[in-house]
Amino acid sequence: MSAVRAVVAQARTEVVLAVRQGEQLLVALGIPLLVLVFFSVVDVLPLGSGRPVDVLTPSVAALAVLSASMVGVGISTGFERHYGVLKRLGVSPLTRPRLLGAKALATVATEAVQLAVLLVVALVLGWDASFSFVPFVGAIVLGTVAFGGLGMLLAGVLSGPANLAVNNAVYLLLLLFGGVAVPAAELPGPVGAVADLLPSGALIAAMGDALGSADTAGAGTWLVLAAWAVVTPVAAAATFSWAPRD
């Protein structure tokens, strides 16, 4: 009971503070929204046969999950560690699992709002509204754990400013080459092959299952995503330090 109270209080605080600061949420919601609206209306991307909005919706949903979990969690946690906020929390009875649980809860709450907005806009733009519940939840959960773990991994080992820079760089790289902006199939051979193994490509394919008309994700895709969802949190847990770098 007290564990639930602690996790909920911590998660609520994280959401309230993120909303109060604003910038990070703007990026997390604004960029996917921009990609969706712009490229649905202006037909410049090599999106293959389907209508742009149907191809783009799963990708921007994936992008929203990626930015909320990796960039959002990673950057805020990195600064909390850098400035010693985590050190202070570390001498309160808030345990590590509870803090992680709270961050996961706060992230899922943020994603719920983001995805609701994105899907409504997609509908307005004429998205065909194909939706499968189980792959949708699976993609959100695995994607959040995989990218949240990656964000925590960076936040736990880098100093505050370096963490900010690396997080943004990874985000940009995944955006350009990870199959987000351009589907992996359309990328030149070797790049496309790597993109298939990256968590971003896998998350997009999984979101394609959930929100697209065609089955894009084979067992391989889910395996790749699940593997990342194990590797990044384990690596983060093994390397994370609450205290600022000396």
Binding site: T13, L17, R20, Q21, E80, Y83, G84, V85, K87, R88
Partner: peptide, 8 residues
């Protein structure tokens, strides 16, 4: 020298 969340 303890810092808290800057906007709490």
């Amino acid at each position: 020298s303890c810092r808290l969340y800057s906007v709490i």
